[in-house]
Nucleic acid binder design. Structure first.
Length: 485
RNA sequence: GGCCCCAUCGUCUAGCGGUUAGGACAUCGGCCUCUCACGCCGGUAACGCGAGUUCGAUUCUCGCUGGGGUCACCA
């Protein structure tokens, strides 16, 4: 059978960067193996789950380019049923009954309040002790008409073992296991039960998830056995910790995938950073999506946790922006447009935009920065950085710039020959400087301020070429008017 | 505290008994240059500790130390 992998987020917020990483590893292996990638929504907690969250997570996945073969909005084979756990209650009930009738589980009438009280009492007596369910209802024979939860009857001897694809053999003594709850009072299954049933029924062959789930695995293996099923394979991923080494949360860094999107990171860069976190392929740092699919494997997945590094992340993202083979001109243009719009700029024509992009590729670290760098191209009058103006433009230099504009304007040949190349502008500037007996370097910044309103920009010959001769001349001639009276 | 897991530069990592311990980010110098960048060259910087095994341990074993995860009617 083809490998079937899954990502099973609970829709209680945005897509977490760590969740995206889990999804990615699953997806990569599915694609590498020619298997199937399933998306399942774990929305059994009615309190926390929301449809908005489902939508947000789906959107973030799509933005990253992690597509799913089965799941919300794409469906799947009849036999795999709904991909929303909230719609699978009947299935869970059926298997719960089976567990009870075979003696693997039992109804427990202890209330949460009672147990909480016992927990607190114990803690008061011995702060270090850990409360375990005393098994009050374990051998109870009657069935009172009271609310109940269903508990698993954990074996108290022996150990539960499994072989992890990353960590190797892991053995947990069963006496460390208490009679954990399977079904809540409200009839909804808890994570371990629902995940086990669904993974089996959906024919999942390998479960890939974060290491924080490693302790759930023995419980799930116990459930597989109790239900008479063979467990799938498991692969746990080392954790992405905060720079301080604590569990990563929004206190330490941006943890929502959306935030990186809003910041102007390219999706390929996001994937690249999170995949290199715990996985490597020799010394290679930068990968395209296709390369990742081709090269991914479990041999080089690390066991040790790591610390999230925003600087490295930013650099990887930038690397993707710099390389045309990773971010095509068309992609770049498409992705920068929303940020241009965000600045209140009118939507530029595709050809004008793609002409301007090569000049900012090596400068802008994000699409957002790119929009800022591109800004002056798309306004009739560039925004003026007054500090740059004060530093580089005075009566003399502004007059010189205007004069240069005049000279350029007189050059008819440029106008008839169609778009003027950067090289031609360069030649003209050099010649003009030579005629005037000045060094280009001495006028360059004044010209830059006139053309872009700033002290930093792509090379002037490129700027002129993108602007075109008419607008270039116009801006140059306007230089003296930039000086306050 | 019980159980489980981990341990190479500040960070992400390569290494699978013999290497001047490599790369990337960050950092510090320098070069290039019309600005800002990019790029290039170079520097600082790591095998947690202690026992074994071995001719030889970063690498294998054990202990210690340190770090992390998890012990819910969350997932």
């Amino acid at each position: 059978m083809k490998p079937r992998l899954r990502f099973a987020p609970s829709p209680s917020g945005y897509l977490h960067i760590g969740g995206a990483r889990t999804a990615l590893f699953n997806w990569l292996w599915a694609r590498n193996q020619g298997g199937l990638f399933v998306l399942r929504v774990e929305d059994t907690d009615q309190e926390r789950s929301s449809l908005d969250s489902v939508k947000a997570i789906l959107d973030a996945m799509r933005w990253l380019g992690i597509d799913w073969d089965e799941g919300p909005e794409v469906g799947g084979p009849e036999k795999y049923g709904s991909y929303f756990q909230s719609e699978r209650k009947a299935i869970y009930r059926e298997h719960t009954e089976k567990l009870i009738s075979t003696g693997h589980a039992y109804r427990c009438y202890c209330t949460k309040e009672e147990l909480d009280r016992a927990r607190e009492e114990l803690k008061a007596r011995n702060p270090k002790a850990q409360f375990v369910y005393p098994g009050t209802c374990r051998y109870r024979k009657d069935q009172p008409d009271l609310p109940f939860v269903v508990r698993f009857k954990s074996p108290q001897e022996g150990s539960t073992d499994f072989v992890d694809k990353v960590f190797g053999p892991i053995a947990t003594p069963n006496k460390a296991q208490q009679d954990f709850v399977l079904v809540r009072t409200d009839g909804y299954p808890l994570y371990n039960l629902a995940a086990t049933i669904d993974d089996h029924l959906m024919d999942i062959t390998l479960v890939v998830r974060g290491r924080d789930h490693i302790g759930n695995t023995p419980q799930q293996v116990l459930l597989y056995r109790a239900l008479g099923w063979e467990p799938p394979e498991f692969a746990h991923l080392p954790m992405m910790l905060s720079p301080k080494g604590e569990k990563l949360s929004k206190r330490h860094a941006s943890v929502s995938v959306d935030e990186y999107r809003e910041r102007g990171y390219p999706p390929g860069g996001v994937l690249n950073y999170i995949v290199r976190f715990g996985w490597s392929s020799g010394d290679q740092e930068i990968f395209s999506r296709d390369e990742l699919v081709a090269k991914f494997g479990w041999d080089h997945v690390n066991k040790s946790d790591g610390k999230f590094d925003e600087k490295k992340f930013a650099d990887v993202a930038f690397e993707h922006l710099k390389r045309p083979e990773l971010t095509s001109l068309a992609d770049y243009a498409k992705n920068v447009r929303p940020f241009l719009a965000e600045r209140g700029l009118p939507s530029p024509g595709e050809s004008e935009l793609t002409a301007a992009i090569p000049g900012v590729r090596e400068r802008a670290r994000t699409y957002k920065d790119a929009a800022s760098d591109l800004d002056f191209y798309f306004r009739d009058i560039p925004q003026l950085d007054e500090k740059a103006r004060d530093k580089h433009l005075n009566l003399t230099s502004a007059a010189l710039v205007a004069e240069f504009g005049e000279a350029l304007g007189k050059l008819r040949a440029f106008e008839v020959a169609g778009p003027v190349t950067a090289q031609a502008f360069k030649q003209f500037m050099d010649d003009w400087c030579k005629d005037r007996g000045i060094v280009f370097k001495d006028v360059a910044q004044a010209i830059r301020v006139a053309l872009t309103g700033r002290s930093a920009s792509p090379p002037l010959d490129e700027v002129m070429s993108v602007l075109g001769i008419a607008r270039t001349v116009e801006r140059l001639k306007r230089a003296p008017s930039l000086i306050p009276a």
